[in-house]
Nucleic acid binder design. Structure first.
Lengths: 204, 204
DNA sequence: ACCTGAACACCGTTCAAGT
DNA sequence: ACCTGAACACCGTTCAAGT
């Protein structure tokens, strides 16, 4: 029971884990109050370091936001992979599982999604784009499967997968922006996937 | 050639047109440097009024951004209407014209688009949503035309039009966020519209 | 190697006061 | 009715200095 074990322990000079703590605190603030309300100084205060300390780990505010976006893409890819592991092998099942997982992630993490997709005209944005690649590749692979099984017309795979990606992303944007009610999410996603299946079915 | 006619004329006490000038200057800054770089104080400096003056016309920074978003929706609707006036009467032509006009507007005014569609959890957002209504109604009317002509399957009109809207919005988001190159815009839009036409064609 | 703390140049917002 | 200008409480960023 020494002085150094109080409720707010005097931290040793070297904090040791600041980067991860900053990211965790930033993500919580992002979810609760949005990107614009996220302040480096406030994060430092919450964690108990001086306002200059974050600088060692993130060159500036934007670098921290980029890091959040990058982890976001990782989590998106994890969500898509997990959904595919729990579904059947046929193309329609995999399409529906992917679409459902995407829009669920996107509407559950609206502020994070915004960070992930509004990257334009920034330095360091290259790293964010690279982080997005696995999710795009996963969509691409899904379309390739559909083309092999004959359920998706032959053609420019990437073009088809981008339009599919765009549709899911757009549905999430309309809902996250309160233009469309969240209660319509499932029906809209079904509409999009069934329309995709019909629109892609090779003409007999 | 009196003292009151210098290059920077001494303005009369009552400015008279401050609201419109603020909006115009704000839109230019938005386009050139993005929303985050837009500062009320800097706008006031550019126009030549005190930093407190904007307060008479916009309660706060967000109110000015909302006003920009609202004028953006008006301009979007204008663009859609203009495109429809220049095309044929058949449904596929009108679908293609609408889609093309939408993605052109959306990629030409990327920062404005972001303002228009990220409205969540804000007061005064109601006015922004209302401003969006005409564009949604226009898409709805287009789908109704397609259903009447038999080129779109009968069903929930709004659901179909929202998915179409979402697809176009998503394509623009991916391009504006530099995830997809602008050069692919036209092909992606064509892919989306042709897939829509095939996916909606009633089964014979 | 990592963090502190003062300093600088900005913000948005408020409000009494001027015309 | 409309605008000014001082004041307040924040920011992000920089950097010499500490351990």
């Amino acid at each position: 029971m020494t002085e150094t074990r109080t409720a707010t322990p005097e931290r040793p000079y070297h904090h040791g884990n600041l980067r991860d703590e900053l990211l965790a605190a930033a993500e919580a603030t992002l979810r609760e109050r949005g990107q614009e309300q996220l302040s480096l100084r406030e994060l430092a205060r919450q964690i108990g370091v001086s306002h200059g300390a974050p600088r060692r780990h993130f060159a500036d505010r934007q670098a921290l936001l980029d890091a959040l976006a990058i982890t976001g893409f990782g989590r998106l890819d994890d969500a898509l992979r997990a959904a595919l592991e729990e579904t059947g092998e046929d193309f329609p099942s995999r399409l529906r599982a992917t679409a459902g997982a995407y829009v669920r992630f996107a509407t559950d993490s609206a502020a994070l999604l915004e960070l992930m997709f509004t990257t334009k005209h920034r330095e360091g944005a290259e790293a964010v784009r690279e982080a997005a690649a696995p999710a795009f590749v996963r969509l691409d692979a899904l379309i390739v499967q559909g083309q092999r099984s004959g359920e998706v017309a032959a053609g420019d795979t990437e073009q088809v997968s981008i339009v599919l990606f765009a549709t899911l992303q757009g549905i999430a944007t309309l809902i996250n922006g309160d233009m469309v009610d969240l209660s319509r999410l499932e029906d809209l996603t079904d509409q999009a996937t069934e329309q995709f299946l019909r629109g892609q079915r090779p003409l007999g």
